[in-house]
Amino acid sequence: MQRDRLVATPERDVAPQYTMEQIVAVNPYNPDILPDLEAYVHEQVNHQTYSLDTNLCLLRLYQFEPSRMNIQIVARILVKALMALPAPDFNLCMFLIPEKLQMEEPFLTLITLAHFLETARFRDFWDEAERNRQILEVVPGFEQAIQRFALHVLSLSYQRLPRLVLAEAINMEGLSLDKFLEHQVVNNGWSVEKAPGGGQIIGLPANEHNYPELKKNIADSIPLEHVSKLFPVLT
């Protein structure tokens, strides 16, 4: 097989202005870019950026040449993928990682964490995350990303919810939660009211999922006015 003749030379040497995404787009099956992709995972971790396409490309190259697999980098990719929830990226990565590896740490822990998030067991998730700080804290922004996901799911579901439910989902309480709420009330249209039996009820801003009347009727049907235009041409 004339592999060398078919694949373009990696652009990095000649044209450093290309982004990693562009390099992957023209070299989707080129093992030579593996080291660059690995470096790019570190860059994503350090700069709090994210690129699913380049990470999947790296996992694909590992799948083709398992001897080159770097377990630590795979773990980073998976943490980043968790942070991309609600997107299904974690599963997309898992489809490409050999089952044998998935039976080992840190992957077992990451799978448990993903399972808790996928089933909205936020309390369990935060407890488990606390116990495994060493895997997660190397990736800056992890906690905020999961809080963002929790808020996403809550705002799909609730108009108003008990403070306790919110506290559990985003793992905040006491003063820091008060501060957070204050900020949200001022900036993002949240509301806080007293519950009859004590405690607080938090009102989330309206979207088409928690206030379905906001849903635009996007049914792609043909309006009657258009049909009426047909009548003159009918015989």
């Binding site: 609600p86 996928e118 089933t119 799911v153 799909l156 579901s157 999922h209």
Partner: peptide, 9 residues
């Protein structure tokens, strides 16, 4: 509550 959130997700 978790199951309802899961449903939504």
């Amino acid at each position: 509550r978790m199951a309802l959130l899961t449903y939504k997700h």
